[in-house]
């Protein structure tokens, strides 16, 4: 039988590193904070972005608005990634909850994607607003 590779053994310092051993209930609580929290925050931002339909008479202002929207979405995306990484090191179960929420969404996307003739961004993509 093959010996277990060194890299696959749990780190000896792992338990020392973690600040506190969580109880089962605390783990569930943290997981739910991450999972439900992600849906609430992302849902609220999505509602704001999709319902904010400002139009200006000037083309320049409308282009600036579109740029602002793109910038806002990019910052929100980056903020989520940074929060996820920071939480992974400090409150691992909250991060796992967030990660599970994103993974669930992506899984649904892949399942629904089977019914769409969607290639790698081309040629059938439909531009979003």
């Amino acid at each position: 039988m093959a010996e277990q590779p060194e890299s696959d053994k749990p780190a000896e310092g792992a338990s020392k590193k973690s600040k506190k051993q969580l109880t089962r209930n605390e783990k569930i609580r943290d997981f739910l904070i991450g999972f439900v929290g992600w849906w609430i925050i992302s849902g609220l931002v999505w509602l704001v972005v999709t319902n904010a339909t400002f139009t200006f008479p000037s083309r320049l202002w409308n282009e600036l608005l579109a740029l602002f929207e793109l910038l806002f979405l990019l910052l929100f995306f980056l903020a989520q990634l940074i929060a996820l990484i920071l939480l992974a090191f400090r409150r691992g179960w909250i991060a796992l909850g967030m990660l599970s929420a994103i993974a669930l969404n992506l899984t649904i996307t892949l399942l629904v994607g089977m019914t769409q003739n969607a290639f790698c961004f081309a040629p059938f993509f439909v531009p979003l607003r």
Binding site: S42, L70, L73, V112, G113, C120, F125
Partner: peptide, 21 residues
């Protein structure tokens, strides 16, 4: 020109857009 799709978290959950590279 793909920035509005590639840098938008919500576009990742749009099944009409393909998986990427």
């Amino acid at each position: 020109e793909y920035a509005p799709l590639a840098l938008n978290l919500y576009a990742m959950f749009d099944p009409r857009i393909g998986p990427g590279s």
